[in-house]
Design a protein around this nucleic acid. Structure first.
Lengths: 284, 284
DNA sequence: TCGGATCTATACGCTGAAGTCATGGATGTG
DNA sequence: CACATCCATGACTTCAGCGTATAGATCCGA
């Protein structure tokens, strides 16, 4: 004997309409059905909810409380339905550290022009799949290959690697650096989501590394001059901060920017996004 | 094709258990039933919620949102049931201006001793029936007869009428007053819930009256000396305020304190409350 | 005061939703 | 490659829930 939304809808309709008969009309069922449904709700709860006279119906004290609560439950349920069906027209693209860098505004503009019916959400999720595995996005922008066979990905562009350092660091005076320039320093990296690993350096000249899990941490440590950072171009344009400068590392291989999706059921818009992004990265 | 709690419970169970089979076990139904129920939910919402492989089940982006929301709906529904069944053990007694005055503590003490399983709530509701008609209480303490035939009431005690005035009013120096002493003043009264009406005075010596709807208003106007008030004893003990003094009015007929309830379905505890209150009022 | 109007509760028969059982297809695994 | 595991589906069954009809209660106006 379990409570059910049908019963709650019935109760609310009776209280709103004032009589079982009118509630039946509003619900599009017979008066007998309303009577039975409410009786079953009262039986399930073990409480009399309505005081019936042949003239009108008024809720008991318990009824008032239940009706109030029932309205909340029904509103929540309706919103669930609305959200689920409306969510059809939202495309969520996840990213871990940085999204599309300087291409972000152009991408959003072009998407809106091409798909006026589908809202675009860029969501930041700090996980290896940028929320793809967690279900918080439909597509993900990643900057390293995905070994997980459940996902597939396509390279949409290449980005230079930049070194992030304090503005008053001696290296900041140079226009660009080489990998070797960082050998003696300590690099702050994010193993889960980041693009930088010690393997970029030849085995004998690897810089020391330290682990971080958060962009803000990373920036703070760099701006105080305690640590160096290395990242893709997009990070530089998305996380500008006073006291932190970015310099290209000439001899570091570029970062491949990937769009990823679930191998089975790829999002219908995936192909469009790939094309759009590839075009953008090719342009500039 | 409407969403219903059964479907939501099914969805949540699948996500929690990880497979349809385990969810079926947890729900106590067959695996086939789970499969069908979830299919019907997906059909109702028009969205694929779960990604099925032969190994495991993971929610889609839409699925994650719906599951999150579904948990909220289910929690609300569970609380509704809990609240409705637990509410059995609460007795709500409403009052408009003042409850039981100096008898309140003794009443609560004795009630708790006699009915340890039933909590007693005294709730203030500013309406003619002190919340009885609105369903916010099971019983009501009233201080005037109820003409509404839907309710019944019993007199549980009598209280003196007191006049409320500013502490520095000349009348405050007297131990007690007479009705005639108020003739020249303006009385602040609450027609909806109050006990005082001009009819207490002979037609030729009625004081001027002015309407109020709130005890705080009333007290403030009185404490500044702008108005006089008249009320039952309980008000004096419940609303003491610096600058306001209460003096008995010797020749005013006492106020009957009533306990009221719905004529049909009187609260099971009504008789006990009447007896308890009658005893208390007789004692002192 | 009595008949009609109005409202809720209940009996009865029927339909379809939801469950079980059995089985097929897909997919990893030893 | 046989096997284990998991989801989907067809066939069948059951009972919850609906509509119709009607009884019972109460109010209202003549």
């Amino acid at each position: 004997m379990d409570v059910d939304l049908r019963q709650l809808r019935c109760l609310v309709a009776i209280v709103d309409e004032g009589t079982f008969t009118d509630a039946a009309l509003a619900l599009g069922v017979s008066q007998a059905a309303v009577s039975r449904t409410l009786a079953s709700l009262e039986r399930a709860l073990g409480v009399r909810l309505l005081r019936r006279t042949s003239r009108s119906v008024t809720p008991t004290a318990a009824g008032v409380r239940v009706v109030t609560h029932a309205r909340r439950v029904l509103a929540e349920a309706d919103e669930l339905v609305r959200e689920a069906t409306a969510g059809q027209h939202v495309l969520r693209i996840g990213y871990a550290w940085s999204a599309l860098g300087r291409h972000t505004p152009a991408f959003q503009r072009r998407w809106a022009a091409a798909h006026p019916g589908t809202e675009l959400h860029l969501v930041r999720v700090n996980s290896a799949t940028a929320g793809l595995a967690e279900g918080s996005c439909d597509l993900a922008v990643l900057r390293r290959p995905l070994e997980d066979r459940r996902f597939d990905s396509a390279i949409v562009g290449l980005e230079r690697r930049l070194c992030a350092m304090a503005a008053d660091d001696p290296l900041a005076r140079r226009r660009s650096l080489r990998l070797a320039d960082l050998s003696g320093h300590t690099l702050l990296i994010d193993r889960r989501t980041g693009t930088t690993t010690p393997e970029l350096w030849p085995p004998d000249s690897r810089p020391a590394t330290e682990e971080t899990y958060d962009v803000d941490d990373w920036l703070t440590a760099i701006s105080t001059g305690r640590r160096m950072g290395m990242s893709a171009e997009a990070t530089a344009s998305q996380y500008r901060r006073p006291g932190v400068v970015y310099r290209p590392v000439r001899d570091a291989e570029p970062v491949a920017v990937r769009l990823a999706w679930w191998r089975d059921d790829p999002h219908p818009a995936a192909q469009h996004v790939i094309e759009l992004l590839t075009a953008l990265y090719r342009e500039a």
